[in-house]
């Protein structure tokens, strides 16, 4: 019994990082209907930058903040390339982001080499309900909950959030009422850069990141986002937590090396089960 509680607690902590990465997918897709394949690269960049900045004697807090801000700027740049030209179909933008992610891997090798990098984070662990959880993972959980609360507020309450949502809901009508759809897309990409950077900065201390970490990070985040139909922040959070718990249960009771496969399998099941709602979304 104690064992089970332990897996649940560590699963929730792990799952919150999936959700945090997934939030970037949600923001970009909700506003532009583009799946940003470079979302994982943004997280890797965030982790690498914070490692270098903290190594360069920037104090904690400042180093992480600078890394996140730079990732936001990189996200904006990605947005300019992917959705900067008016009328670019989402599928073309998606392929552009795929190209950017390949380019980003090369750039990361060039700048940081091939070895995994891990910036310092919170050290030590705490015991919760009999399960030992690293304090850094708890920080991730708290940051994730705050981020999702903020996202939900922005999208459901703020005027800007409604305009962001309207841009993808009906681009023609959005332009007609004077919403600059292109600019909204850029805002979304910049926000996704910040979210991706934040995820990387927070995850890297417990999971060392290398140039090739972008794909596993993106996959787990994407799986969480698929739970939310790639549009709902709240359901993405739930999805991330479910995936984390499922992964930890698999690792605990079966075999640790099956974790990724279980996540992928869950994603497949959800995509098939929800395929109707995806189609309906496009048909609107």
């Amino acid at each position: 019994m104690n064992e089970l509680v332990g897996y649940l607690v560590s699963g929730v902590a792990l799952g919150s990082s999936f959700a945090l990465i997934g939030s970037g997918f949600v923001v970009v897709h909700r506003v532009t209907r583009v799946v940003n394949f470079a979302q994982g690269s943004l997280a890797v960049l965030g982790g690498m930058l914070s490692a270098s900045l903290l190594g360069g004697r920037l104090p904690h807090g400042v180093g992480e903040l600078v890394a996140v801000v730079v990732c936001g700027a990189v996200g904006l740049l990605m947005g300019i390339l992917a959705v900067g030209r008016r009328g670019t179909p989402p599928l073309i933008s998606l392929i552009v982001t795929l190209g950017i992610s390949l380019l980003a891997s090369a750039a990361i090798i060039w700048l940081w080499g091939q070895d995994p990098v891990s910036p310092p984070g919170l050290s030590g662990s705490m015991t919760i309900l009999g399960a030992s959880v690293e304090r850094q993972r708890l920080l991730v959980l708290v940051a994730t909950l705050l981020t999702f609360a903020a996202l939900a507020l922005v999208f459901s309450r703020s005027y800007l959030g409604k305009a962001l949502t309207a841009s993808a809901s009906n681009p023609f009508a959005a332009r007609m009422v004077g919403i600059d759809v292109r600019r909204m897309g850029l805002v979304a990409f910049a926000l996704a850069g910040v979210l991706g950077g934040l995820a990387g900065v927070l995850v890297a201390p417990t999971n060392a990141l290398s140039f090739s970490s972008d794909l596993p990070l993106a996959l787990s985040g994407f799986a969480a986002a698929v739970f939310g139909g790639l549009t709902s922040p709240l359901r993405t959070l739930v999805g991330g937590l479910c995936l984390g718990v499922a992964g930890q249960l698999t690792a605990g009771y079966l075999n640790g090396s099956y974790q990724t496969e279980v996540a992928l399998l869950l994603m497949l099941v959800i995509m098939i089960a929800r395929s109707k709602s995806f189609v309906a979304e496009e048909a609107k």
């Binding site: 005027y159 409604k162 009906n170 023609f172 009508a173 959005a174 009422v177």
Partner: peptide
């Protein structure tokens, strides 16, 4: 040309976007 998945209230409010 509605924003189909948004409420009537939100549709109306967005109509005033250009003049806030």
């Amino acid at each position: 040309q509605m924003f189909p998945d948004m409420t009537v209230e939100d549709n109306l409010k967005l109509g005033g976007w250009s003049i806030r």
